[in-house]
Design a binder for these strands. Structure first.
Lengths: 116, 116
DNA sequence: AATGAATGTCGTATATTTGCGACACACTTC
DNA sequence: GAAGTGTGTCGCAAATATACGACATTCATT
């Protein structure tokens, strides 16, 4: 990034970009979907279900955990990860607001060909 | 990425990750918001409104255009960019489906502490 | 205490992203 | 046609992301 001028953007924009970056990898999408499907918050089984090494999966988990999108609880020898649904709902609202802002308002459709 | 094992993931997961990556930078978020606010699809004025050089902004625009999230039409000397609202609505639905899938289902809240 | 299993962290190699200056191209205007 | 303006592309440098093997750590089990 060569020194991201992140300070020059809105906190809202940065927050949105942060979450988007967390979702910007198929593996992390898959992890979230996996956690959503299995009601039991599995631990290292995640690594077994993905075509990646345990090390890599662990790093993806840490990234998601750093944003608090998922949470891990030590359960004896294993670690149980689970989705932070409250935060996910909040993020969903942020994205929805963004998309609504972007999709309302007259876009130049294929017909009106830019009102410049 | 060191050779992304992208082939191992669902096309749906890859698509979602692709779009998320496009939104994974505050500048691109800002660009989309800017295009949404100005009904006239401005061109290089975008660069003037962002704390980045024209070159960098141009690259961000190309990235968004590569995913067809925005479109550019040459209008004489200037280029008019505008949002592809149809695609954006579609993407919004994809994200919504993903988030709903992720937020429904009993997450281990702070109380039930993982049903492992 | 010793062994084994499950995780996370560290170090490293490679690929990608980010940002920008320098240049080339297209078009308008004089 | 010459000069000027608006855009995109190319090449480079620095920062990140990605992936994984090798270790360290923690806990259960014997």
């Amino acid at each position: 990034m060569t020194y991201a001028k992140t300070a020059a953007f809105t906190e809202e924009q940065q927050q949105l970009a942060r979450v988007a970056k967390a979702l910007a990898h198929p593996a992390r999408i898959a992890i979230i979907q996996l956690l959503a499907s299995k009601q039991t918050c599995i631990s290292g089984d995640i690594a077994a279900e993905l075509p990646l090494s345990r090390t890599t999966v662990s790093q993806h988990l840490q990234e998601l955990k750093a944003l608090d999108l998922i949470r891990g609880e030590i359960e004896g020898l294993t670690v149980c990860y689970c989705l932070n649904t409250d935060l996910l709902k909040q993020v969903h609202q942020q994205f929805t607001a963004f998309f609504i802002e972007a999709t309302t308002g007259g876009a130049c459709g294929p017909a009106d060909a830019c009102a410049c």
